[in-house]
C-alpha cells in the first residue's frame, strides 16, 4: 500500500510532495516519489536537477516516512510512468500538482495531469501550488 507522488521541480510539484508526505504519514503508508522526463527536449524544466533532487531526498529523509524516490528518463513520458508506478506499487492514492493551461496548449501538447486523472485506478489528489 503506497502513496505515489508525481514530482516536478515546480511550485505545484513541491506542493504535491508536501501533501504526499502528510498523506503517507496520516495513512501510515509508504511513499513513492517519481520524477520523469520524456527526454524529448534538450531542456526539460519538469526534470529535477541534481541539486533539486538532493533537496527532495533530504525532505523525504527528514519526514521520517518510509519512502522510495526515483528519477529517470523514459520516452513514454511522465503520465504513463506515474500510471504504471501506481499500478505496480498498489497505490491507494496518487498525488500530483496541477496548474493553469491554455486550451491551445492542452490541445497541442496534451495534459499529463488529465491523463493521470483518467488513467489511474485509485483516487487522485490534485494539488495547486
Amino acid at each position: 500500500m503506497t502513496v505515489v507522488v508525481g514530482y516536478t521541480p515546480r511550485p505545484q510539484g513541491r506542493a504535491a510532495l508536501r501533501v504526499g508526505i502528510a498523506e503517507a504519514r496520516a495513512r501510515g503508508e509508504d511513499l513513492y516519489v517519481l520524477n520523469v522526463s520524456s527526454g524529448a527536449s534538450l531542456s526539460d524544466p519538469t526534470y529535477a536537477t541534481e541539486e533539486q533532487w538532493a533537496e527532495v531526498v533530504e525532505e523525504l529523509r527528514a519526514s521520517g516516512v518510509e519512502h522510495r524516490a526515483e528519477r529517470h528518463v523514459d520516452g513514454r513520458g511522465g503520465a504513463e510512468e506515474v500510471t504504471r508506478a501506481a499500478a505496480e506499487h498498489d497505490a491507494t492514492l496518487v498525488v500530483i500538482g496541477i496548474r493553469h493551461r491554455t486550451a491551445t496548449g492542452k490541445m497541442l501538447f496534451g495534459s499529463d495531469a488529465q491523463r493521470i486523472l483518467l488513467d489511474v485506478d485509485c483516487p487522485v489528489l490534485a494539488v495547486k501550488a
Binding site: A40, G75, M107, L108, F109, G110
Partner: peptide, 15 residues
C-alpha cells in the same frame, strides 16, 4: 523521431 500520438505532430505541422 518519436512524437506521439500521431495526431499531435500533424496538428502542429498543419499550424
Amino acid at each position: 523521431l518519436g512524437a506521439r500520438p500521431l495526431l499531435r505532430p500533424v496538428l502542429v505541422g498543419a499550424l
